[in-house]
C-alpha cells in the first residue's frame, strides 16, 4: 500500500484543504481517544478515576495497577494476575501460527504449481471454511477434543486454531504464488529439482512478504480469539478470556485502573507486532487476499 505512489488527488482550494485536514484529524481523535483514555487511567489511583475526569492526566502517577493486573489481580477465583494466562496465550500462539503458516505455504504451492484435476474444488472448500461462523462447529468440537483427550489444554487450542486458520494462510500463499512465474518451476524441474527442492530453494526464498502477512494475520487472530478460548480453554485459558473474567467479575470494588492495565497488556503483543510490521501486513493483505 505504501508502495503505491499514485493518488487520485484532484486540485482543491485552500478552504477545502483545511476542511479535509480537519476531518482527518477529527477521525484520528476518534480512533485515539478510547485507547488514550485507557492508558491514562491505567496510571491513576482508583479514587482519581471514580472522582475525577477521565481526560485529565494522573495527579499521582502509579504503576501499581499494572503490577496488580500482571501478578495479583483476582482472575475467576484465583488471585494470580494475568501472567499465567499471558503465558498460555504465548504457548498457544507460537505453534498455532507456525503450523498453520507452514501448511498454508505448502498448500499454496501445490494449488498453484502442481495443479491437478479437482484442485479448484479443494481450494473452494478451503476458502469457504475461512468464513464459516464458528458456532457451527462448537458442539462437535467440544466432543472431539474430549475424545482426543486434549480438551481444555493448549494442544487442543493449537489444533483448533490450525484447523480454522489454514484456509486463510492457504489463500494468502496461493494468491501470492499464483503471480510467481510457472516457467521458473519448470526450469527447476528440468534442472533436476524435485517437489520439495523447488519449494525450498526457489519459492521459499522469495516468500518473505507473504509470510509476514500470514504470520501477522494468524498471530492477531489467534491471540485475539475469545470464542474458542472460552469454549475449549478449560485449564489453559488464553489472555482474552482471563481479561474478560477480570473485567466482568462482579465481586468487590471495580478496579478500573487494573482493568485498563490488563486490557493494554492483552493488546500489547498484537500492537507491537502491528507497529513493527504493520505496513507490510496491509500491503501484503491488499495484494494477497482482497482484490481492492
Amino acid at each position: 500500500m505504501s508502495g503505491a505512489t499514485q493518488s487520485t488527488a484532484v486540485s482543491t482550494g485552500r478552504i477545502t484543504r483545511t476542511l479535509i485536514y480537519l476531518v482527518l484529524l477529527l477521525f484520528a481523535l476518534f480512533y485515539l481517544l478510547p485507547f488514550f483514555v485507557m492508558v491514562v487511567n491505567s496510571l491513576k489511583p482508583l479514587d482519581e478515576i471514580t472522582g475525577g475526569n477521565m481526560m485529565s492526566l494522573p495527579q499521582t502517577w502509579t504503576i501499581q495497577p499494572w503490577l496488580q493486573a500482571w501478578s495479583s489481580a483476582q482472575i475467576g477465583v484465583e488471585p494470580t494476575g494475568l501472567r499465567p494466562y499471558f503465558l498460555n496465550s504465548l504457548l498457544m500462539v507460537v505453534p498455532a501460527v507456525a503450523i498453520s503458516t507452514g501448511l498454508g505455504a505448502i498448500n499454496g504451492y501445490v494449488l498453484t504449481k502442481w495443479r491437478f484435476r479437482g484442485d479448484n474444488i479443494i481450494f473452494g472448500l478451503l476458502l469457504f471454511s475461512c468464513f464459516i461462523p464458528f458456532q457451527i462447529v462448537l458442539i462437535p468440537m467440544a466432543t472431539i477434543l474430549g475424545k482426543l483427550g486434549i480438551a481444555g489444554s493448549i494442544p487442543g487450542l493449537v489444533l483448533v486454531h490450525v484447523v480454522y486458520g489454514v484456509g486463510f494462510t492457504t489463500l494468502y500463499y496461493r494468491n501470492y504464488y499464483a503471480a510467481f512465474p510457472t516457467e521458473l518451476v519448470r526450469a527447476a524441474m528440468i534442472d533436476g529439482a524435485g517437489f520439495f527442492r523447488i519449494f525450498w530453494r526457489i519459492l521459499l526464498p522469495v516468500s518473505g512478504p507473504i509470510t509476514v502477512v500470514s504470520v501477522i494475520w494468524q498471530f492477531t487472530n489467534v491471540w485475539n480469539d475469545f470464542l474458542f478460548g472460552a469454549s475449549f480453554g478449560g485449564q489453559s485459558q488464553p489472555m482474552t478470556v482471563a481479561l474478560n473474567n477480570l473485567v466482568s467479575s462482579s465481586t468487590g470494588v471495580k478496579e478500573y485502573n487494573v482493568h485498563f492495565a490488563g486490557a493494554i497488556l492483552a493488546a500489547l503483543p498484537t500492537l507491537l507486532v502491528y507497529i513493527v510490521a504493520g505496513r507490510y501486513f496491509v500491503r501484503g493483505l491488499m495484494a494477497g487476499s482482497v482484490k481492492g
Binding site: P181, E183, L184, R186, A187, A188, R201, I202, V206
Partner: peptide
C-alpha cells in the same frame, strides 16, 4: 524460456 526463468 521466453521469460528466461532465472531464479531471482
Amino acid at each position: 524460456f521466453q521469460s528466461y526463468a532465472l531464479y531471482p
